[in-house]
Design a protein around this nucleic acid. Sequence first.
DNA 1: TGTACATCAGTGAACGCGCGTTCACTGATGTAC
DNA 2: TGTACATCAGTGAACGCGCGTTCACTGATGTAC
Lengths: 199, 199
Amino acid sequence: MPYKPEHKQATRKRIIESARVLFNRRGVSDVSIDQIMSEAGLTRGGFYHHFKNKEELFAEAVTNFLHGQGAEMRSNAGVNTAQPGLEVIQRMINGYLSTEHLGDLDGQCPLIALPSDISRAGDTVKESYQQLLEAMIGLFESNLVESNLEKSTAHRKKALTLATMCVGGMVLARTLPDQHLADELRNAARDSALAMLNL
Amino acid sequence: MPYKPEHKQATRKRIIESARVLFNRRGVSDVSIDQIMSEAGLTRGGFYHHFKNKEELFAEAVTNFLHGQGAEMRSNAGVNTAQPGLEVIQRMINGYLSTEHLGDLDGQCPLIALPSDISRAGDTVKESYQQLLEAMIGLFESNLVESNLEKSTAHRKKALTLATMCVGGMVLARTLPDQHLADELRNAARDSALAMLNL
DNA sequence: TGTACATCAGTGAACGCGCGTTCACTGATGTAC
DNA sequence: TGTACATCAGTGAACGCGCGTTCACTGATGTAC
């Protein structure tokens, strides 16, 4: 038997990671399989040994973020390491709406970089995207529950609103040509989100 | 002199309107100039008598919404006809985050349909997009000023946050495959936005 | 330990196709007389 | 009022190009002996 199973696995990961970065930079339609494979140090022909088609790769790229940079963002907010509570939410909001995240074109959350691409993609992609959003909503919701006395339906609504503000603020900030307005909007979203925590 | 000047103007409008609808449905990259011209009842060759290139048409399509359907949305909220005040904002939020707006793929606001396309486009497009967003922020801001006693910096921040919630809520709702979650999120955004008005 | 070999990850030429854009043209129009 | 004509909006064939995908192949690998 030629090559160990890990070898193919590792190549596959490399293609997904290359795709994730290029999609984040230029969108799905404007990045070719040639470019993705080349960025991964491979040639185009090999692509179909790893994926059924471009759409499958797209879904994998979103899922990859969920378990990679996304998990890192949640971990930076203190999930699993810190005491659960509003401080975890606070760190997540500050991180998500930060200047660093806005500037990190390669590492940014796909919720920000690719909403239009995803709304036009197939169900597999959309489900990956939904999982990612649900991870964010879940982080907010569970850390609200532990922290104050509101009813859980109110918590749920608050968690959904916080997710809307985080993603919405960043999507708009990324799109505006006027940097000052972009910052103003992002800061307003962040402050209003933090204000909802009643810290 | 052949044809009246209005004739070319009218054709140009027809092309822009055709583009606006098709872009809304399928995005900019996935709609061809052939399809746009054909939808407008013309053939591809004539396109360059009206526009420098596809990008210029994109910018025009966004601006067209601002003065067309967008103006209609603002007018439905009661701008210029009703007493200025929180009720105008309330109607705008309810309309923007409505089931009707979510279902209106052809007539929807480009802020919702095309954020990713715009973030990758040139400055002309981005400026058209910014004008559209500023119209929304301006509606919120000016109708807050007339209505209560907060400081104007607080009004500005609130207007920016409301715009984030409206656009963010709809962008996310459009992208989620689970209709129930999409509705839940959109309703949460709407309720939280309305709650900021202290009606 | 050394070698022959089966496997299959990766290669790169080729496919048909639709794209954005160009251009020589055509023919409906409004005007000058 | 009727006609000859200049204009230019609109046509459609053609361009080079890069796309997603297919496929016959090649050669590095781990294994069997």
